[in-house]
Design a protein around this nucleic acid. Structure first.
Lengths: 197, 197
DNA sequence: CCTGATCTTTGCCCAAAAACAAGAAATATG
DNA sequence: CATATTTCTTGTTTTTGGGCAAAGATCAGG
């Protein structure tokens, strides 16, 4: 893990990969961001908190999960270059149903909703950045619904591998299983070439 | 069905229910919108088209669906006061995997991506409107994933009724079934009080 | 490098819902 | 108002994947 992070460089990357930001906006954004480092299995957000932060992953990965009847169900994975937050809490200002957990020791940038609101009001560009991030997330989620809705466990898994080929090397299978809406056992059987075709 | 539509009034409603728009922006938006009327089972978008329009429903309802192995699968319903479009085609500029069909004779307002781009560039407010619409859609979709992922057919149906109580009076059960990711037969059994509890 | 904790595989049985197949009810159309 | 067409219900069989239990593998920490 890098010891030093150049926030300006990261903001340039965001500007390049999502939507261009003016220098002024980039400067304000750099000053609004806070660097965080976390070890594996650190918890960023707990159920019930008002989670008014968004995290940008510079290095490592994280997941959002919730407890359904005591069972841990993963709802979202995020890797380098992606944002993660407890979206219900963040957008609706309600207690978070989700936990957010670090899956791989890494570096995050934190941005509060207040700062996002200020930046969005001040800079048209920044409003567009938020729109772009939300739109990308919407399209990913849309794909996921299609996958969950009418595919077999096997197809769902293959689909995920298509989008996130390296995921099995970075994330425990339990989390992948609950993310796909299948049990760990079923996932295990699917992965065993002796079963299936 | 009303014979006359006051677009300005509708735009005021949009401004009030999504996010405030300045008078100038509202004026430009009014001029950019086109009124359309459709009968039941009219097709707004066909699979394969570059669907660069978004529709706002003034009266009536519509659905987006796609064909999976020849089977008709409903992906989205929209009612009065909501927007509908073929989101993949609209945002990614690819051929639409979806059809969009009118389920109830009604009135729509059409807005093209070009006009949305122009309005978004010209008005910070309008960019915020788009962000707001996309965010609302994201949160709805998020709820839907939770519902599909780990609930029984019965729970999924009850969930839908919670959000859209009148839907069974307005939409054929086949479409509700595929939307929920269950078969028409299973839905029929769930709805029959003799079965289940 | 040992050991306990966590993660994964495997086997067996069972429940939920899908597939298939009629048939009934409701709705549209001439 | 009669008939065609679409929509919905019901019965039966089959499949998929879940629940539980136990054993095996992997990993982190002392």
């Amino acid at each position: 893990m890098e010891t030093d992070v150049d926030i300006s460089k990261v903001v340039e990357t965001i500007s390049a990969s999502y939507t261009p930001l003016t220098d002024a906006c980039q400067g304000d954004l750099v000053r609004a961001l806070k660097i965080l480092r976390f070890d594996r299995s650190a918890t960023l957000v707990k159920e019930g908190q008002y989670a008014d932060k968004t995290y940008f992953i510079v290095e490592g990965c994280a997941r959002a999960y919730y407890l359904k009847d005591g069972k841990d169900i993963t709802d979202w994975f995020a890797f380098e270059g992606e944002f993660i937050s407890s979206i219900n809490s963040f957008f609706l200002d309600v207690p978070s149903p989700h936990f957010i957990e670090i899956l791989e020791r890494g570096i995050l940038l934190e941005l509060s909703r207040d700062k996002i609101t200020i930046l969005s009001d001040k800079y048209h560009d920044f409003e567009r950045l938020v729109k772009t991030v939300v739109t990308k997330t919407l399209l990913q989620l849309q794909q996921r619904v299609v996958s969950i809705q009418f595919e077999t466990a096997q197809q769902k898994y293959e689909n995920l591998l298509g989008v996130q080929p390296g995921i099995t090397q970075r994330v425990p299978l339990t989390h992948i299983a609950s993310f796909l809406g299948i049990t760990l056992e079923t996932l295990s059987r699917i992965r065993n070439p002796k079963n299936g075709i």
